[in-house]
Each structure stands twice: as structure tokens, then as C-alpha cells.
């Protein structure tokens, strides 16, 4: 471990003269910077997507778990009677901790994202809703449906599982897709840096020949290239992350107005995660260039 630490510390304290042995290559440098910046930008978005998808899956899971809804679809004059009948059935059903009918105001609030705040719900044929909470162990939904059908024919039990499970599954897959994207972005960055390093090593064959002539070891020559590409990748990634964070800043967060597309932004400690991207980009560039340099130098006589 100590030799690795010593080597890394020496790498961080570059010799001013050693850093100059490889000629500056403006075009390659700009392309590497741009590529690293673009990849960092995409990585932050993939990270945001993964975190948002994870958050959504968790929220949907937590908020809807153990809950169910009974809808009363009946003529207006029978509505209250059926609500009361359904509440009686629910109150006597084992496994149900609580059940209460939503007020008109609560129902209006649920519809507000689609119809606006001042919409008169009574103008629509909206069914009455009863929210119920399961107790530990849950209830027998088949038995409850049969009892409701007998005592409140307009009542329809919706235990949320029908649409909650696919949604949470979709969110989990979206999160997986986000992490997979980050992995692919990392691999693509490594591939781009490898290609750029190979091009640079080929273009500087004469430099390598001179360095070997004067007694440079392969490690010294490799370091000259590795340091250059690591610094370029880190600087490019810093720029990409900065721009991406500015863009993420304008995405809707969980505490903005209610809606289905909330929670897409980062929150709290999550804002620290994009800061890991530049060091990771530098690490990817370091490993990719070192492998590339070792392979190229090993193949040269």
C-alpha cells in the first residue's frame, strides 16, 4: 500500500520540467477537455435520474403501502347512504385500522393539479372516496369486496396494488437505468481517453525515442502522458459538472407545487454527489491512460 501512496503523492507533486517533456497538443487537449466535460454533464443527469427514480419508488411505496380506497359510484341521492353503509362494513372488517370518507375539499385538492385550485368539483360526476388504512396483517380483499357488493352496491374497492406495483417496478427500473447509464458514461469516458492517449502516444513516438535515449524509464514516460490526460479530464469534468448542476437547479423539486413530475431535482446531501464526478473522471482517465501508455511503451523497441 505504501509504495502506491508514495507513487500517488509523487504524481500529485509533478516536476515542473518533467511536465514539459511532452509537447503541448492544442487540438487533442481541447477535444479531451470537451469530451470529459460532456460526459460529466451527462453523468450528473444520469445521477439525478437515478436518485429521482429511487426517490419516486420510495415515496410511492411508502405513501401507498397499507392504504386502499373505496369509490362510491351511485346516483347523487343514494351517495350518502352508500357511503355510510360502506363505512359500517369497513368498520367491522378485521384488518382495517381506520376508514374515513374524504370531504369535498379534500377531493378538490386531489384534482387541483389537473383542474386548478378554484374548480367546483360538484360540477363533475366525481365518485365519493373513502380512504382506509390497513392494520398489521392486512385484510381479506376478496371477502371485503363481496360484503361491499352486498351492502353498498356502488362501492368499489381499490387496494392500490394494481397500479402501485407496476409504478414502483417502473421507478426501480428507471433507477437501475440511471446507474447503468453512469456506468456506460464512465466506460465511454475511458474509451475516449484511451483513444486520445493512443493518438498522443503515436504522435509523440519521436519524443518517446529521445526520452529513452537519455535514460528515461517507461514509468517516467507514462507519467508524463498520464498526468496530462488526468488533469485534462478533471478540468473538463469540473466544467461539465458545474453546467449540469446549474441545469439541475431549475428542475422541479419535491417541495414545489404538487404534481406527478415532482422530485426530479437533487435535494439536501444529494447535491454533494455530483462533486464526486470530477475526481472519478480523473481516476478513469488515470487508469485508462496508464493502461494505454504501458501497452504502447511495451510494444515499442
Amino acid at each position: 500500500m505504501k509504495p502506491f501512496v508514495d507513487k500517488f503523492m509523487a504524481f500529485l507533486r509533478p516536476d515542473r520540467h518533467a511536465g514539459r517533456v511532452v509537447p503541448p497538443s492544442g487540438h487533442t487537449a481541447t477535444l479531451t477537455l470537451f469530451s470529459a466535460g460532456a460526459m460529466a454533464f451527462l453523468a450528473v443527469f444520469a445521477l439525478t435520474l437515478a436518485l429521482a427514480a429511487g426517490g419516486l419508488a420510495q415515496r410511492w411505496g411508502q405513501e401507498l403501502a397499507g392504504g386502499a380506497t373505496v369509490r362510491i359510484i351511485a346516483p347523487k341521492e343514494q351517495e350518502n347512504a352508500q357511503v355510510q353503509a360502506a363505512l359500517r362494513v369497513l368498520g367491522s372488517t378485521p384488518g382495517i385500522a381506520s376508514a374515513r370518507a374524504l370531504s369535498e375539499a379534500e377531493q378538490a385538492a386531489l384534482l387541483a393539479p389537473w383542474f386548478g385550485q378554484n374548480f367546483d368539483v360538484s360540477a363533475l360526476p366525481v365518485p365519493r372516496l373513502i380512504a382506509l388504512q390497513e392494520s398489521r396483517g392486512g385484510f381479506d380483499s376478496t371477502g371485503l369486496r363481496l360484503r361491499l357488493a352486498a351492502e353498498a352496491p356502488g362501492a368499489v374497492l381499490d387496494d392500490h396494488g394494481r397500479w402501485r406495483d407496476p409504478l414502483t417496478r417502473a421507478a426501480a427500473r428507471l433507477r437501475l437505468l440511471g446507474w447503468l447509464s453512469i456506468f456506460l458514461i464512465g466506460m465511454t469516458t475511458a474509451a475516449i481517453i484511451t483513444l486520445a492517449a493512443n493518438a498522443s502516444l503515436s504522435a509523440n513516438a519521436q519524443v518517446i525515442s529521445v526520452l529513452r535515449l537519455v535514460g528515461a524509464t517507461d514509468a517516467y514516460i507514462a507519467d508524463a502522458f498520464v498526468r496530462r490526460f488526468t488533469i485534462r479530464a478533471a478540468l473538463g469534468a469540473v466544467g461539465g459538472v458545474f453546467i449540469a448542476m446549474m441545469c439541475v437547479l431549475v428542475l422541479p423539486s419535491t417541495d414545489t407545487s404538487a404534481g406527478i413530475l415532482t422530485g426530479l431535482s437533487l435535494s439536501g446531501w444529494q447535491w454533494l454527489l455530483p462533486l464526486c464526478v470530477p475526481p472519478l473522471a480523473a481516476l478513469v482517465a488515470y487508469i485508462a491512460t496508464r493502461i494505454s501508455a504501458s501497452r504502447t511503451l511495451g510494444g515499442l523497441t
Binding site: 520540467h17 518533467a18 517533456v21 535515449l213 537519455v214 524509464t217 517516467y220
Partner: peptide, 26 residues
Amino acid sequence: GVVHQDCQFLDHLPLGENISLPLTVS
């Protein structure tokens, strides 16, 4: 020490740095 017919320098470095290159790499 090796002296080549075509000398083999790093053309982007001033002569002083080229001559001291063996010191740098050592």
C-alpha cells in the same frame, strides 16, 4: 552518453532544457 547523427532533440524545448533532459529524467 549517445550522440546521434540527427541529434534527436525535443523541438518544443529550449536548448538548455534539452541538454539537461538526462538530469530531468534521472
